[in-house]
Design a protein around this nucleic acid. Structure first.
Length: 300
DNA sequence: GGCCAGGCTAGCA
DNA sequence: TGCTAGCATGGC
């Protein structure tokens, strides 16, 4: 990771080609998201550090981003943690040139590259948040999923107000582990999802599950490990590998958003079957996550 | 009003 | 190993 301390702000540099403006397009598209707020060309988010949560404003810089601190300035150590979060959120260290090389040979992906060049898979660095969001999003439409997520965060998260808006920290596993499924039912979680999420919170609270433990697993082992968690199937495991562990070969092939994007790009009147998608994706090998993300971005 | 939604589990053959 | 009912409700 490459970052620099400029006293009142920090800069984090991405590996070329990196363009924050392209990532910002994605952030703006998720306008029902509650964990961050886009104001103009700047995204504000509460970033957890060991010295507490720090409200941070992130905007584009020459070959990376500039991060300012509108409320309280973090210490040197805090800045390092914030730089690390930002670097991870935007997958800034990844060398994505191989993806562009294979995309140039691919009829589906090729048209997307000029439009979104420099865009990274925008991630979910926190494992509990990534798993919870994957489970909330299963088999319900995204509009409703965002409503449920909002209720969950407003009920059990903490926030800091700034300029008439609230900036949230995702509910901590220790808090969620204490809940009764009935409490989440009131927020319109299904009973199953309530159980899954509370169980995962307990696993994390009891140190049986952590990002640090899983971080160095091979892709296949990580997927197997994630799928051993109740409520996490094929799609969710790949979604979390993609958004939290940044493994570019993660391929949530059953994803309805992917199906709809392909239908639109191919001009079909129905969604392609999974088998057909697998054939189409033969050339995406190793970069399926980026292919999926660029396709998500291209539609809807 | 009916089909679909960023699927998963458990039960069955 | 492969198939499917049931989940649970909102969105459009």
């Amino acid at each position: 990771m490459n970052w620099h301390d400029d006293e009142s702000y920090i800069t984090v540099t991405g590996r070329e080609p990196f363009r924050f403006e392209a990532c910002l397009k994605w952030l703006k598209k998720r306008d029902k998201e509650i964990m961050y707020e886009v104001v103009g060309e700047c995204v504000f988010i509460l970033i957890p550090t060991e010295e507490g949560a720090v409200l941070s404003g992130i905007e584009g810089a020459y070959d990376g981003v500039k991060v300012t601190f509108p409320l309280t300035a973090p210490t040197e150590a805090g800045k390092a943690q914030i730089a690390s979060f930002v670097n991870e959120w935007f997958d800034m260290d990844k060398d994505i040139l191989p993806f562009y090389q294979l995309a140039a040979q691919d009829p589906v992906l090729k048209p997307l590259i000029p439009e979104f060049k420099g865009m990274r898979v925008v991630g979910i660095p926190d494992l509990f948040e990534a798993l919870t969001w994957a489970i909330i999003g299963q088999q319900i439409n995204l509009t409703f999923a965002y409503k449920v997520k909002r209720r969950f965060i407003e009920q059990y998260g903490e926030h800091i107000p700034f300029k008439g808006r609230r900036y949230w920290l995702f509910p901590r596993p220790e808090r969620v582990a204490e809940l009764d499924p009935a409490e989440l039912r009131e927020l319109q979680f299904s009973m199953r999802k309530a159980e899954y999420i509370i169980d995962i919170a307990k696993l994390i609270r009891d140190r049986k599950l952590s990002k640090e433990k899983l971080r160095n697993y091979t892709p296949a082992t990580l997927k197997k490990e994630l799928m051993s968690i109740r409520g996490v199937g094929n799609w969710s495991a790949d979604y979390v590998r993609m958004k939290c562990f940044r493994q570019p070969d993660a391929f949530p092939v059953a994803d309805v958003g992917l199906h709809n994007a392909l239908k639109a790009r191919l001009g079909r009147d129905r969604k392609p079957a999974v088998e057909e998608i697998m054939e189409m994706a033969a050339g995406w090998s190793g970069w399926e996550a980026y292919a999926v993300f660029y396709l998500w971005m291209s539609s809807g």
